[in-house]
Amino acid sequence: MTAMVSLRDVSKVFDGSSGPVRAVDGVTLDIERGDVFGVIGYSGAGKSTLVRLINALETPTSGQVVVDGTELTGLRERGLRPARAGIGFIFQQFNLLRSRTVAANIAYPLRVARWPRAKRQARVAELLEFVGLSDKAKQYPDQLSGGQKQRVGIARALATSPALLLADEATSALDPETTKDVLDLLRRINRELGITIVVITHEMSVVSYLCNRVAVMEHGKVVEHGDVYEVFARPEAEVTRRFIGAALHDRPRPDVVARLRERHPGRLVTVAVREVPGEPGVQITERLAAHGVAGSVVFGGITEVGSRPLGSLTFALTGPEAAVDALLADLRAHTEVVDHTAEEVPA
């Protein structure tokens, strides 16, 4: 089986007001069938352009885009239309037609695909049922809440039974509760319908809740990618660390460290909490006891990424210097440890 999406050295250059802008810069990426693939990056990182290259709303300046075995690069506009129709797309702002009812919005791609009326109606009813909006068929988008609008957007994107669904910041305009509902719906689409999903987001929580693989983008480049837990447990790029820090708030900033130091005697150390397959968990409390070191948790945060815990805890450790050193060496053999005492005290 070939990959669902295969990008080879893809670049997209726009003519900006102050010279050309490389929105996407030499991206090579494979998205496998069945993946829920997250593309995370801050605004301007090029992720929206990347997703528009995948469904051929944009054509790359260079490189090769292959979706579901069809090479999109080199196709003319007319040839791209059937390819686009075979890829579902959901938008941050929903982009529903206000002049049409919910049912007519969902039927729109079926009209484009020239489905006969009876088949269209049956399919729309089925989709409304799937997204739980059967009672809203005759309403207009303006009468719906944000979450309901996005459900309509999702039903519309699924209408032609695409093998690939692209979600561009699909939950960014929604409140946390509705976000979770929509993410659950996307998860169901992936599991029950077997549709490959690409999720564009600037929120780590979306990726850690939904995705099995992730690519981190910055300045048009994919700076790292791989299994979600692997990437977030052992981030290599600074931007990835920033996303994790912003989502977890688990690591004390220097000013917090300074305040903690004033308040707590002993050595301040931050210990990463992560679960690596094949390794026993770091039994922090047991190790403290084994080395005869007393420690209290003074800061930290742990969340779940792909059903596995991830985060860090900051301890104030008290005990004989040699015992603490031995403990830290022991912990370092298993996980990442930051010793704040070793850092310079900010003036």
Partner: peptide
């Protein structure tokens, strides 16, 4: 422009977009 982009993403051509999106909306 989002609704036009949505129609394009569903494979609609320019004439269809004019007749079914731009004018009705």
């Amino acid at each position: 422009p989002g609704v036009i982009e949505a129609a394009r993403a569903m494979g609609a051509g320019p004439l269809r977009i004019i007749a079914t999106v731009i004018v009705p909306e």
